[in-house]
Structures are given as C-alpha cells and as structure tokens.
Amino acid sequence: MGYLNNVTGYRNDLLANRAIVKHGNYALLTPDGLVKNSIPGFENCDATILSTPKLGATFVDYLVTLHQGGGNQAGFGGEGIETFFYVISGKVTAQADGKTFALTEGGYLYCPPGVIMTFTNAQSADSQIFLYKRRYIPVAGHAPYLVSGNTSQLEQIHYEGMEDVILMDFLPKDLGFDMNMHILSFAPGASHGYIETHVQEHGAYILSGQGVYNLDNNWVPVQKGDYIFMGAYSLQAGYGVGRGEAFSYIYSKDCNRDVEI
C-alpha cells in the first residue's frame, strides 16, 4: 500500500488534511492521504477506492491510474452489477459484450448488469480513469443496454436555464436505467440556483477548477482532484470560484425508481 500523492516520510509541517468524513451524510476526500489499494484483477495500476457501502453509499467509486500495459483483464462487473467507465486523461482500450472501444479523454462506457468489461492502457504514458459500480434495481418491462461515447458528442444543456452552468447527461432518459452519470460545469461566479435536498445520492470527482461547496449547510472549499460523497437528503450546492477555469465535476445519481419499504 502506498499513497496516491506519492509523498512518504516525515512532513516539514504539522500534520493536517482538508478531508471530512461524515458517514452516511457526506464526505470530502482530498488526494493527500488517500491510499493505493491492492485489488484482484487490477494489474500495473494505482487504484484508490472512494465511496463504498462502508461510507454509506449504495455504489462504489474508484480512481485508477493505469501505467504502461496496465489494466484489468480479469473483468470488472458481474451478475446483477452495472458499471461505468470514464477516461479522465490518456487513451484506453476497453472491451465489453464482444465489442472493442478506443476511448480517449472524455470517453465513457456503461455496461448493464451481467456484462463484464475489461480495459488496458493504450499508450506508454499513464492514463487515468474514474470507475463506478452499483447493484442494479430492475423494473418490469424495461432493461438497460450498453452505451459508449465521448463528452465532445454530448448536448451541453443550460442547467435550469442558467447560461453559465452547463450540464451534460451520459445516459438516455429511459426507465431501463436506474442511474445516470453527468458532468456539471460552473463558470467562475456561477452557482446552483438553490441549496438542494433530495433522496438521490452522489459521488462526484472534480475534474477542473475550484469551488465552494455546501455540504449539509457547511461551506467547504474544494478543487480539482478532490472527491465528494453526498448521501440521501444531505443539503448540497456549489459555487464556481477561481480565475478563468470552470469548476467542473463528473458525478453519479440514482434515478427512475420508487423507494422500497
């Protein structure tokens, strides 16, 4: 086990960390202090496990750096498990359902439950990916299907009519899907229109910029490379701050299902 930031040994200052963990409510995980996990099937990779049921999430998120020749040929996913794969940087070749996908930065692949994906770094330099898995909740008469593409092909939606807040949806609005993945991007000074409170939960990896995020009515500075977990009914909203670069993050959301009791 090593550290994601590759910093070891004594520090020259007091030990401190911006991370916050409120189990079942919300969490902010920063690169400093996150560890590299040894996971069967992941070869020549630095894999970090982010949200899990141990934190209170119904899904698992991973941040993975693929070194030269690195990847997962054993298979990611399984019976009843849906998966999502996003290329943060680099080039990756993925396989699923007998098809091969050449994915570059912004490329993605969703696999429905029971469809196993494999992937390999397709360049000599490192590639970095964001991975998600969740137990699928079926609904009669509908089924999900394999989806792949690139963010360059997605519609850029003015979020709730705000021209300086851009939303991109990865998956179709179809009852076969019980989750979606999105990118939300705020120009500096832009924000949500209100503080949200809802049953859906999120796992969000910040791709660019800086922001100030309301997590259960606590305003917290965040930036590129941070990860946020937001549990059900955790109050949430964000402002884009910084100089010139959009505050942008990829995040998951459960949807299209009633609440089981």
Rank of each mutant, 00 (worst) to 15 (best):
M1F: 11
G2L: 09
Y10V: 14
N12I: 12
D13H: 14
L14Y: 12
L15C: 10
H23E: 15
L28W: 06
L29I: 11
P31N: 06
P31S: 07
P40K: 11
A47C: 05
I49E: 12
K54H: 05
K54E: 13
V60L: 04
Y62F: 08
L66I: 08
G70K: 00
F76T: 01
G77E: 01
G78R: 02
E82Q: 14
T83V: 14
T83K: 08
F84T: 01
Q95D: 10
T100L: 04
F101Q: 04
E105K: 15
E105W: 04
L109E: 04
P112H: 09
P113E: 07
T120H: 13
Q123D: 10
Q128W: 05
Y132M: 08
Y136S: 02
H142Y: 14
Y145M: 03
S148Y: 11
E155D: 05
E155Q: 15
Q156F: 02
E163K: 13
L171W: 08
N180W: 05
I183D: 02
A187R: 12
P188M: 06
G189C: 05
A190T: 04
S191A: 15
Y194H: 13
L207F: 07
Q210T: 15
G211K: 02
N218P: 01
G225F: 03
D226T: 06
I228N: 01
G231E: 02
A232S: 15
S234H: 04
A237R: 03
V241P: 00
R243C: 10
F247Q: 00
I250L: 13
I250Q: 02
S252D: 12
S252Q: 09
S252N: 15
D258I: 13
E260R: 09
